[in-house]
Design a protein around this nucleic acid. Structure first.
Lengths: 220, 220
DNA sequence: CTGAACCTGACAGGATGCTGACAGTTCAAG
DNA sequence: CTTGAACTGTCAGCATCCTGTCAGGTTCAG
């Protein structure tokens, strides 16, 4: 299990490297953007932990280049603060998970393992429910087999709903998972997105549970 | 929080059981495969710590059987050593996490907590009592299997009653838990809500204990 | 019998959710 | 650099639903 770890802060890096190696991983550590890009580009790592604030070459740019080149190594992005814009950008650029600094090692390890597990079981990444299906590898949704034209946020929302088919997802959870925000209320962006999604999926695809949230029927 | 712990090495087991109980868990300990399978099969545990090298019946086989039978209790697999193959097999069989021996207790506890946290966030509990049932995941109540159309407060109230089936819930508790108020008396909003709920559930679903509160018969 | 506790139907104000429109931003093509 | 398309947050208006309150009736315990 070889990991690539890109982080310029020496103190943090030493700590993390020690913990990762203690957990049985072999770690390659780089401290600047160009090195990270070069090493990651060969696709030989099981996962990459990428600080978005690298010197020399921005983490987001690196990530986008990798994805463009077809490198699908799972990436956990480390964001400087709880900046939600950064998180959203990270997801759009192709990160599989993000972790806001500061973080606890257990958290990083847990997410890393989850990511590796998902990656190893990547065969069955097609969620389906009634007329709707969704390929998590390509983030492509379909209705009755015909591909849908979903925006990034809509796709993530649909993914979330399908993962939790049959159970209610609160607007707050949607905001967190899909948009990367955690501030509640005071805006109806979730409602707006649901409306757009419904327009593409059909009005009865996503149901409202007034006062609680939204859900896709079926599942559990 | 009841745990199932399957481990045949008596020395390790004693150590782990002591630590788990010290952390506030109630532990059922078994030392061979068949016992583990039997006890785990009732799905009553919050989590299972499963040594893969059990005598009598292999841990992986047990795990696969459970999953086949729909037991989705979170499982931490203990692997003999850092054998990579074993880990992969463990994940494929349905383990939620693995831990290579030897391990430190803190590590086990940390992973256990992480697992329980994740699991509790996804659990879809169905409360039921006589003709009434309530799915907490979808916040959907049913009477004789037919879905009910409950308002948010009614749904939360029904949930509360079912959680405390057989015991009296005071109007004050209802006001607090369901409506989020803490001011007592001076209004009969609770009474009004009970009336509306009875209209949907049937008059005999919720009984009054004059001077104390309301309750659903049966349960405890 | 009597007062307190409880029930119920009606109602209005408020909360909640939906929708169409719009503007700022990003991104890629020209 | 300019341009245009796509995306998404925000806003305002609207429809609907929810729920606290009130008034009057009913039931219960002492």
């Amino acid at each position: 299990m070889k990991l690539l770890f890109a982080e310029d802060d020496a103190a943090i890096a030493a700590h993390v490297v020690a913990a990762l190696e203690g957990a049985g991983f072999s770690v390659e550590h780089v401290q600047n953007g160009p090195d990270a890009w070069e090493l990651g580009a060969d696709g030989s790592h099981s996962a990459i932990i990428l600080d978005l604030g690298l010197p020399g070459l921005d983490g987001l740019t690196i990530l986008k280049r990798w994805r463009k080149d077809g490198i699908d190594t799972p990436v956990i992005a480390l964001t400087a603060r709880g900046s939600w814009m950064e998180r959203v950008d990270g997801f759009d650029a192709g990160a599989d998970d993000y972790l806001p600094k500061p973080f606890r090692m257990e958290e990083l390890l847990a997410r890393l393992r989850a990511l590796l597990r998902r990656a190893s079981a990547r065969k069955s990444t097609v969620l389906s429910n009634g007329r709707i299906s969704f390929n998590e590898a390509s983030m492509q949704g379909s209705l009755d087999g015909t591909p849908l034209d979903l925006s990034p946020l809509e796709a993530r929302a649909l993914q979330l709903f399908l993962h939790r088919a049959g159970s209610v997802v609160s607007a707050n959870e949607i905001a967190t998972h899909v948009q990367g925000r955690s501030d509640d209320a005071s805006n109806n962006s979730v409602e707006a997105m649901i409306a757009r999604l419904r327009k593409k999926l059909g009005a009865d695809a996503i149901l409202t549970r007034r006062g609680f949230g939204y859900y896709i029927p079926g599942g559990a």
